[in-house]
């Protein structure tokens, strides 16, 4: 019960902040919630299943472009376009999983990196439709969901909160199901899980599709709420970001992705006022985390304060 109270409490707190925050931070937090949803998806695969992907930008972009191209070229309404984004994410992550899960460890990392890079280059190659690096703006008129204008900051914040809340509770529920427990066991010792009679390949495949689809939901949501799709979101950098956020917040904790995204967002936000080389912060944090705090912030909380933190 404490567990559910904690996570529901965060959602209530974020709802209260909707009425309290000044415009600038209000807008930032909406963005953080969408990006944290992306991190939640990443965490399912990396934090709970123990598979380090360097290609999640491919799934985020599949959602973003599935939705965006659906609106732009197929003339879809936002809801079916969002669904198309989800389907694109599920198909792409399933396809990559079937290939990449034949490998493990370092090879898995490189394979995901390479296919994501191929996806990014493909977006550039078909620049006629995708507008390449420049990207395209999704018109305000086509971002009205059931008559609600998602470009309005208030609506946008609440929509981001619904997306984030859904992903958060979904991941909380998932990791406590028997299925989620098997994922954790695979992370700890895959061979032993197999010798307990579980089909580990099927579990990893499912984990990667769930993870990729959540990432795609975040991508599609990002495009709908902020009205822009560009190839940058498919670049290596956007595969590194969720890794960074999850590592910082605590891999294999339900709250970690949000905490990590929030910290990193404001760290980069503050530093970009000082220098254009804001990715320096990302690099330093990445090295420092691997060296000194591989558990991340919430991992430390779990270790020191609350062992049962999911």
């Amino acid at each position: 019960m404490r567990v559910y109270a904690l996570h529901a409490g965060l959602i209530v707190l974020l709802f209260a902040l909707h009425f309290l925050l000044p415009a600038y931070h209000h807008g930032n937090l909406a963005r953080v919630m969408v990006l944290a949803s992306y991190a939640i998806g990443y965490n399912i695969l990396f934090g709970y299943t123990g598979l380090l992907s360097l290609g999640h930008a491919l799934f985020f972009a599949a959602g973003l472009y599935g939705m965006g191209l659906g609106i732009q070229h197929l003339g879809l309404a936002p809801a079916p376009a969002f669904l198309l984004g989800l389907v694109a994410g599920a198909v792409v992550s399933g396809g990559l999983a079937l290939l990449a899960l034949r490998t493990s460890g370092v090879a898995f990392m490189i394979v995901t990196l390479m296919f994501a890079q191929a996806g990014y280059l493909t977006l550039l190659y078909f620049g006629t439709y995708t507008r390449g690096d420049e990207g395209f703006v999704i018109a305000q008129a086509s971002r009205a969901l059931w008559g609600i204008d998602l470009s309005d900051p208030g609506n946008r914040y609440l929509a981001a909160l619904i997306l984030f809340g859904t992903c958060l509770l979904l991941s909380l529920w998932l990791v406590r199901t028997p299925f989620g427990r098997v994922l954790v066991a695979i992370r700890e010792n895959e061979e032993r899980v197999r010798m307990l009679g579980y089909d580990t390949f099927a579990h990893k495949l499912a984990a990667m599709v769930i993870s990729g689809t959540i990432a795609a939901a975040a991508g599609a949501g990002y495009g709908l709420l902020f009205g822009y799709a560009g190839a940058t979101f498919a670049s290596v950098q956007y595969s590194i970001f969720p890794l960074l956020w999850v590592l910082l917040g605590g891999a294999g904790t339900v709250l970690g992705p949000f905490v990590g995204t929030l910290f990193m967002f404001y760290l980069i936000d503050l530093s970009s006022g000082i220098t254009t080389a804001y990715m320096l912060i990302a690099g330093v944090v990445l090295v420092a985390l691997t060296l000194f705090a591989p558990q991340g912030l919430m991992g430390e909380v779990r270790r020191r304060l609350w062992k049962g933190l999911p």
Partner: peptide, 17 residues
């Protein structure tokens, strides 16, 4: 080859589930 970072009960539960 037990799951070292999981509880004793969870180790057995994985087998039972």
């Amino acid at each position: 080859s037990v799951f070292a970072r999981l509880s004793v009960a969870e180790n057995v539960a994985l087998a039972a589930r």
